[in-house]
Each structure stands twice: as C-alpha cells, then as structure tokens.
Computed example of a mutant assay.
Amino acid sequence: MGKHRKLNKGQLRRVRANQQKRLQQNDLEQELDDASLGGTESGVIISRFGQHAIVATDDQQPIRCNIRRAIESLVCGDEVVWRRFTGQSANTEQGVIEAVQERRSLLSRPDYYDGVKPVAANIDQILIITSVLPAFSAQIIDRYLVACEDIDITPVIVLNKADLLDDVEPEQRQEIADALAMYQAIGYQVLSVSAKTSGGLDDIQAVLKDHVSIVVGQSGVGKSSLVNALLPDIDADVGDVSSNSGLGQHTTTVATRYALPSDGFLIDSPGIREFALWHLDETRVAWCFIDFRPFLGLCKFRDCKHQPQDPGCALQQAVEAGDLHSLRLYNFHRIIESMATSKPSRAIPRGSKK
C-alpha cells in the first residue's frame, strides 16, 4: 500500500477550514429549518464575516444575517433576497440571506492559495488611490488600470497626501507630475487631494455623487484616512507607514460599503501591496493598456513581444515617434514578467476577450 502524500500548510489550512465550515453550516441549517421566517425582502451586502453578513435594508438599516449554504459566493455590494426572523432566536442574527441577484460588475483579486477571489460587486467606479508616501508607483497604478479595463469599470486616479509634495526631492516631484500628466493625456481622470488638510475633497465628493465607488490601492496610501475625511462618522482604522520597510500597514480587513450624503455609496477595500494579474494572458493585458489599442495587430510578426529587439514592432515604433509614452511600455513589460514569476503552477490564465 502506497504512502499518503503529506499535505502542505496551505492544504491543511483549507481542509481544517472546510471541516469547520461544514460543522457550522449543519448547525445553522438545522436552526434555520426550525426558525420562523417572514416574507422575502431585498437588500445589499454592507460587509461579510465568514458565514454571516451585514445587509442594508431598503431604508438603509443594517441587519445581521446568516447565509444559506446554497449560496456559493457573496461579497460586499451584492444585491440579495433575505428573510427576517420573526420568532425568538438564540443568536444575534436577525435574518437569513436566501439568494443573490445577478451581478452587474465584479472586482476580483488573484490570491496565490485560493485563486481569483471576488472583492466587491455592482460597482461602477474605481478610485485608484496612490500617494507621495509610500513611494509613488506608476507601475502599481497600471496594474489597477488593467484590472479596471478588464472588467469595464471606470477608473479615477487619486493622488493622496498631496500636501507632502513640497517635502520630497524635486526629481521625485517632477516624476509624479509627469506620470499624472501622462494619465490625463491618455484620457483618465486624475485628482490630487489631501485627507490631512482636506484639500481637493470637494472634487472627490463631486466624482462620488450618484455612483457606487470602491477605493483601492497599496497599503499605506491613506485609503482609510481619505474615507474618514469623506465620512467622518465611520472612523475607519488608520495605520502608519512602516519606518523599516517604507510600506503601509494593513488596516482595513474586509470590504465595507458606506452610504454617502451625496446619494452615492463608497466601498473601502482591504489594502494590498501588489495587485497580481496572473489570471490574465499577455494579449488581454496589452489590450487593457488603452493607449496600445491603435497599434495592436500592426506588428510585423504575429507573436511580437514588443521588445526593442523585435523587428517591425508597432508599439516600439509608436514610442520612437512620440505617439506612445515609454513609461507605459516599460510598465507593461514589468507586469508581464511578474505574471510569469508569481503565477501558481495550477493557475490557468483567462483567455483574451475584446
């Protein structure tokens, strides 16, 4: 009889989590079968915590609910059908989520262990938050822009901590200004704000009005500080930038949806230091660089990698002619390189679609 292969730490973690989930769900289903439930109501997920979620009712009241076992995926922003407990419940839950409505959009994040994980649903605008500190990175912005273009959701680039611009070296200040001007020339909306001094907040409020928006960005760029400045009553956790690594400290742990005074909604998402794109293939990533599109398909060779040594490369020729910014092509190649090194061996990239 052959030896059983020893499970690694990640596999053991998932096995134990699944066992615990099954035990909890069995107890939950028995309780729900015995509970007296009212009629169906509509709502939207404010946030999810394991097998429970906070639902905003039609009048924006938060209700804590259990989640039916048949629901395979549930994230912040999902529109749901739920039922209220009418009898006495021993737990703190006030209802149960019965079904999830079809999503109009979905922002997902690749995870090394768990594949592509959904972050938030039914959003129509993504605020890409960057900042002077930690170090401004056009490459990280481009990763988020690719993610936005892939799911066809409008991005808005927001430079936070603009009050620190006078404190950085002139070369760094010029680098930031040039990059932001580049994105504006491509056609993206760019805003400069300071959560600390409240500068530019009126511009942000105008952009958020009547939209469902989500804030994303690497840890430490001040997402939670910006959310607090826009919604001072919520008091989102704020973390400092590490003096050792220069990187931000994670503060927000789950995506949470907040109602805005301007008839819109804002989702604060967990901070991440790098937005992986290994779930896409190279041709899809190139198509998601919108300034590449006029030149795609014009290269001399079909399998062109758009490197300087590739003869007849339309993208390289566009850079030389001044029709394409060299930084964008540089960032594209760095993204493609990182996709190859960070992709799990079991992962299968999503195919090209146009």
Rank of each mutant, 00 (worst) to 15 (best):
M182Y: 05
V168H: 00
D150L: 07
I126P: 09
R103V: 09
I176G: 02
P118T: 02
Y183N: 08
E102M: 13
V116K: 09
N122Q: 00
P110Y: 01
A181M: 13
P118V: 05
S137G: 05
L106F: 02
I153H: 07
A185E: 15
G115L: 03
Q125K: 14
R104Y: 03
L159E: 03
D142M: 10
R104F: 02
Y112G: 02
A147L: 11
D124E: 09
R143N: 10
A185P: 08
P170G: 03
I126W: 02
D152H: 14
V119Q: 06
Q174Y: 00
I157Y: 06
A179T: 15
D114E: 15
Y183P: 11
P170S: 07
E149L: 10
V100F: 04
V132I: 14
S105F: 07
Q139T: 14
A179E: 04
D167F: 12
E102Y: 01
D150P: 08
A120K: 06
V156C: 07
R143I: 08
L107I: 11
L145G: 06
I129L: 15
Y188H: 14
L191S: 04
Y144D: 01
R104K: 13
I186T: 10
S131L: 07
V100Y: 01
L107T: 01
P134F: 01
T154R: 05
L165D: 05
I123T: 01
Q125I: 10
D124C: 09
L191P: 10
R173T: 03
I128E: 02
D166P: 03
A181V: 10
I153G: 08
I151W: 07
V146E: 05
L107Q: 06
Q189C: 11
P110T: 02
V116A: 03
D152Q: 13
A135F: 02
Q125Y: 04
D150K: 04
D114S: 14
R103I: 12
Y113C: 01
L106P: 07
D142C: 12
I186D: 04
I141L: 13
G187F: 07
I123Y: 00
G187T: 06
I153D: 08
L127T: 02
I151M: 14
I153V: 15
I157N: 09
D111Q: 11
Q174E: 15
I126C: 07
I151Y: 02
D111L: 13
Q189L: 12
L127A: 07
A135G: 06
